[in-house]
Design a protein around this nucleic acid. Structure first.
Length: 780
DNA sequence: CAGTGAGCGAGCTTCCGCTTGACTT
């Protein structure tokens, strides 16, 4: 079966949809993204030969490439329909090269939305490959390789092996480190915020509270008290009532970054969670492509939204709008993220999928709706004994518009916005004051980044792309530069001064502040690496570096610049800084002396070692004359920047011998996976929040050992005398077969208790004949 | 890397952006 036309797109889900539109003699296949990349085993760039890139087809792409090659040879015409952006154009070029496509039977087509009209229009308007755009991509790719593969080895030598640096990840870490420093150095000021409650009759004659505030705060306690004293004999009257209309407009439809932010704020999803749920929705044809920087909607989508709004809410809720992308470096190859069918308000699927879909549906619909109309009222209240005045504000919704459907959330919500209706008031009205409070409030430190707010910041700086936001967050955590954690807050006291009638009462109250949930914190390694890089590679670490090179890539794309000349201009001075760092910079280990060990009189210090942060007692020196120093790793949550001598000395109390059992020693220590008991070469974890490794008794340790033995007995479902290496075990992911250090899945339909040795052998043999994949994890 | 931590020292690590599944002990 040979089709006359072969269309190649990037994504298989897209291929399926497009094939439906084209039908007949069009076969639509996907390349699964890039098919070639720079050689990873080598440097991949021939610097001496004008930076010639050395491309290879990676192992996992060989199959798809040979399939595409076969199909392209059989087809009469090959239509390359990769995305219309820098990367997409490069994919098109690589395809043409690798598949050895002949010019006369190859056409390049592009579309920005997956609608029938758009695709047919594209087929009728093919264009040649844009070599300048391809060159711009090559420049981008080569620059990233040069930076990543020259700077990372400097870190291996100067800080610790296996570390990484790159144009994007290093700047992401820098943002987090600098924010942490701002927080550490932040000094909070307190001031007194004064508010008064008046008793007023509402429209129905009921007595209600009217809350009003002083527009400014008192910095000093004495001034707040003096003000309240003046109020003891004061009379109050309405000085002014001003009513102003205002409007609010809906937010634009979702891009990758705004979807990640809203799903984080409204649904509590992590960035990667959002992407994998969106991926499923996309594959099922429920939403458009989820990796996009565009806020554009197809005319079709706008029209259906209009129809849905008119039918369900009425014409006055309709306001069709086309939004303009404002983010830096946007390439707009796709539409915004929207429902595939606007008239589908809900979908079937997992609850996560339904929630995310609903969010996308609401946001898209709201973007095509009228402004909300509000009326803001400000009332000024005179105080007879003071020049000061209170201000009460109220906001009334006159027309809900898009708010009927959707409201965008904001980060770090401050004390709730007060949407309230004020009781009817007229100038000159006398008011009765119930009480006045002056409350001590503290200025707030800058907020730590969440995954989503970091993405927003990166996008603002034009760093990273929609397809990389989630992986960036994972990378910087995997490299150990950053951790996502909860932190408990600290308690502080604050003062309140209350005036009721003529009596002034002061009180000291307590509040907890600074509680953090799922926030990004830099680690010691992250801080040390960041400081080393910012000192030695100032240019690349500059927040505007990406924006600057992007401008040059644009010049290449427009044909005004030759790509390898641009790279040469960058590389020559860059390479000098690399050489300079290798030859002249100090090893960065953040060494810090804590004091003297009272037992031995030797110095105690912290530093970054081969395996991470450590405490050391005693100097290293001549083997003959100096005693070997003692070492201990820092516990999680400790930092070389803040650890004290006392905390450091405690670490040397482990490993600790707690006693003997069955004639063998029991020791307690803290390892990679937390505190544990070690006995007879076996490890048992201590119970979290129950056992303390520094004080655990021998009895308790034995209890844990016995509990583990009991559990291990239950872990074995079956064993066979004929084959002692083969056992059926109960693991974290259910029953499995363990055979000579390898594990095998048991088919869901079979009962593991009933499996015979024969059946087990068959499962093992079958899985051995299946193509075996060694994951990166098992290799390590 | 579930007890580590100079020294000897081979060979390893690493980038960003396009795309999906595979598969974890």
């Amino acid at each position: 079966m040979t089709e006359e036309n072969l269309v190649i797109v990037e994504s298989p889900a897209k291929a399926k949809t497009i094939e439906k539109f084209l039908g007949g003699n069009f076969l639509v296949k996907s390349s699964f993204g890039h098919i070639r990349d720079l050689d990873k085993k080598e440097f991949g760039v021939d610097i001496k030969n004008h930076y010639a890139p050395q491309y290879i087809i990676s192992e996992d792409k060989k199959k798809i490439v040979s399939e595409l090659k076969k199909l392209s040879q059989q087809a009469k015409m090959v239509w390359i329909a990769s995305d219309e952006d820098r990367e997409g154009e490069a994919i098109a070029w690589h395809l043409a090269e690798v598949l050895e496509l002949k010019e006369e039977k190859t056409k390049r087509i592009v579309f920005h939305e997956i609608t029938k009209d758009a695709i047919l229009h594209a087929i009728e308007n093919p264009r040649p490959l844009n070599r300048s755009l391809v060159d711009a991509q090559q420049a981008r790719r080569v620059l990233d390789r040069l930076v990543g593969f020259e700077v990372s080895p400097v870190l291996w030598k100067k800080v610790k092996p296996s570390l990484s640096a790159g144009r994007v990840q290093s700047v992401a870490v820098r943002l987090i480190v600098e924010r942490e420093r701002e927080i550490i150095h932040f000094t909070s000021n307190s001031s007194f915020k004064v508010s008064a409650i008046f008793k007023v009759k509402d429209a129905k004659g009921r007595l209600v509270d009217l809350k009003a505030e002083l527009p400014h705060r008192f910095e000093k306690y004495e001034d707040a008290v003096a003000f309240l004293q003046r109020c003891q004999d004061a009379a109050y009257s309405v000085g002014d009532v001003v009513t102003k209309p205002s409007r609010r407009s809906p937010a634009p439809p979702f891009t990758t970054s705004t979807l990640q932010q809203e799903a984080s704020r409204k649904l509590g999803y992590s960035v990667s969670q959002t992407m994998s749920v969106a991926q499923r929705l996309y594959e099922e044809g429920k939403i458009t492509y989820m990796r996009t920087d565009s806020v554009n909607l197809s005319q079709l989508a706008i029209n259906t939204a209009k129809k849905v709004i008119t039918e369900t809410l009425g014409e006055k809720y309709v306001h069709s709008r086309q939004y303009k992308t404002k983010s830096k470096g946007a390439q707009e190859a796709h539409e915004a993220i929207r429902p595939a069918y606007m008239d589908q308000e809900t979908i079937t699927g997992s609850s996560q999928e339904r929630k995310l879909y609903e969010l996308i549906w609401k946001r898209t619909l709201a973007s095509q709706m009228s402004d909300a109309e509000l009326e803001k009222t400000t009332v000024t209240i005179h105080i007879s004994t003071s020049e000061e005045h209170f201000v009460a504000t109220g906001e009334v919704l006159r027309f809900d518009g898009f708010l009927r459907v959707y409201m965008e959330s904001i980060d770090d919500e401050e004390e709730g916005r007060e949407d309230k209706l004020l009781p009817p008031l007229a100038i000159g009205d006398e008011l009765k004051c119930d009480h006045i409070d002056a409350v001590e409030r503290f200025s707030q430190r800058p907020p730590r980044y969440t995954e989503a707010s970091l993405v927003r910041k990166l996008e603002e700086l034009g760093i990273g792309r929609p397809s990389t936001y989630a992986p960036i967050i994972t990378t910087i955590q995997q490299r150990g530069y950053v951790v996502k954690e909860d932190r408990e807050g600290t308690e502080r006291q604050f003062m309140t001064i209350n005036l009721t009638g003529k009596e002034i009462v002061e009180k000291i109250q307590k509040e907890v502040f600074g509680t953090e949930k799922s926030k990004l914190f830099p680690t010691d390694i992250g801080i040390v690496v960041n400081d080393y890089l910012t000192k030695n590679f100032e240019k690349v670490m500059d927040f505007n570096f990406t924006a600057k090179v992007e401008k040059e890539f644009d010049e290449i794309a427009e044909g005004h610049r030759v790509w390898n000349e641009m790279i040469d201009d960058f590389y020559k001075p860059f390479h000098v800084t690399v050489e300079n760092a290798l030859n002249n910079s100090e090893r960065a280990n953040a060494e810090r002396i804590l004091g003297t060990d009272p037992e031995s009189g030797k110095p105690v210090f912290v530093k970054i070692g081969r395996y991470g942060p450590l405490v050391q007692i005693g100097e290293t020196g001549d083997k003959e004359t100096t005693e070997k120093p003692r070492f201990a790793s820092l516990n999680p949550g400790m930092s070389i920047e803040t650890i004290t001598l006392e905390e450091a000395l405690v670490l040397f109390r482990l490993p600790r011998e707690v006693g003997e059992y069955e004639g063998k020693k029991i020791t307690v220590a803290i390892g990679r996976f937390g505190p544990y008991v070690r006995f007879d070469n076996k490890f048992v974890s201590l119970q979290k929040n129950v056992d303390d490794p520094y004080s655990i008794t021998c009895e308790r340790a034995i209890e844990l050992i016995e509990a583990k033995r009991e559990k291990d007995r239950n872990a074995v479902i079956q064993s066979f005398d004929e084959e002692p290496d083969l056992r059926i075990l109960n693991g974290r992911w259910g029953p499995y077969i363990s055979f000579k250090k390898e594990n095998f899945k048991i088919p869901k339909s079979t009962d593991p208790k009933e499996l015979t040795l024969e059946a087990c052998r068959k499962i093992i043999a079958d899985s051995a004949s299946a193509p075996k994949k060694t994951s990166r994890r098992t290799k390590k």
